[in-house]
Computed example of a mutant assay.
Amino acid sequence: MQEAGLRAALIQAALNLLEGDEADISLRAVARAAGVSAMAPYRHFADKAALLGAVADRGFSELADRLRTADAERTDPVAALVAQGMAYIDMAFDRPALFRLMFAGARLATTDVDCGTAAYAVLAKRVATITGDDRPHAAVAAWGIVHGLAMLSLAERLPPDRAERESVLTLFATGLCRSSDGKG
């Protein structure tokens, strides 16, 4: 197996174990799942946290793709922001183990400093079209709202009502629009 192929196979094996609710996601278990020697993962990853960081990076890439797709399907900026929020929450429900890993922190998954930047940039760009400028606080607020809804929903602290989550996001996006035009 070529080195690039080995790295990809190890990341995929770790992702499969993670999403299969495997309790033991050790480098040895990942190597076994990928069908390679127990030492093979060390050619690409210093430790388990580095491997899980690569899995988290893949998750952030998928999240960015989902946000871009949701955004591109809408012409109205408020509807596009709501669609992005729903895509974010959908990812949390579709891939809960991966989603939790993405935000687990450096002790569990060592990620690149820029990990998640592309996904955040999609959100921030849309917020800027609504507010009329680049307000970092507005983008952080949007991210906080959608991430909070996703985590509360995963923890079953909110009713399992998709329409209700969409209503909350619409309320926020509409309020953001009003605050930017001086009506709020």
Rank of each mutant, 00 (worst) to 15 (best):
residue 82 V to A: 10
residue 94 D to A: 15
residue 19 E to F: 14
residue 21 D to C: 02
residue 5 G to N: 07
residue 37 S to T: 09
residue 101 L to A: 03
residue 42 Y to H: 08
residue 21 D to K: 09
residue 103 F to Y: 14
residue 42 Y to C: 03
residue 12 Q to I: 01
residue 17 L to G: 03
residue 138 A to M: 06
residue 16 N to K: 05
residue 49 A to V: 01
residue 184 G to D: 14
residue 14 A to W: 01
residue 155 A to L: 12
residue 140 V to Y: 11
residue 145 I to R: 06
residue 182 G to R: 10
residue 16 N to R: 10
residue 147 H to Y: 13
residue 40 A to Q: 08
residue 85 G to A: 11
residue 168 V to G: 12
residue 119 A to S: 13
residue 3 E to V: 06
residue 7 R to M: 05
residue 92 A to E: 09
residue 174 T to G: 10
residue 57 D to L: 14
residue 103 F to S: 04
residue 115 C to E: 04
residue 166 E to L: 07
residue 23 A to L: 06
residue 139 A to S: 15
residue 3 E to C: 01
residue 15 L to F: 03
residue 9 A to R: 11
residue 174 T to K: 07
residue 88 Y to C: 05
residue 118 A to F: 10
residue 153 S to E: 12
residue 10 L to S: 01
residue 140 V to M: 12
residue 138 A to T: 04
residue 166 E to T: 02
residue 161 D to E: 13
residue 9 A to K: 08
residue 32 R to E: 07
residue 117 T to I: 12
residue 177 C to P: 00
residue 35 G to N: 02
residue 16 N to M: 02
residue 29 A to W: 04
residue 172 F to T: 03
residue 102 M to C: 13
residue 29 A to M: 06
residue 75 T to W: 09
residue 81 L to K: 01
residue 169 L to Q: 14
residue 178 R to Q: 14
residue 97 A to M: 10
residue 61 S to E: 13
residue 49 A to D: 04
residue 170 T to S: 15
residue 134 D to A: 11
residue 45 F to V: 00
residue 32 R to P: 00
residue 182 G to E: 09
residue 159 P to F: 07
residue 81 L to T: 01
residue 35 G to R: 00
residue 153 S to M: 04
residue 70 A to L: 11
residue 93 F to V: 05
residue 20 G to A: 04
residue 1 M to D: 00
residue 70 A to F: 14
residue 92 A to P: 12
residue 113 V to L: 13
residue 70 A to V: 08
residue 70 A to T: 05
residue 134 D to W: 05
residue 52 L to R: 01
residue 52 L to V: 04
residue 2 Q to L: 11
residue 13 A to E: 02
residue 143 W to Y: 14
residue 170 T to F: 05
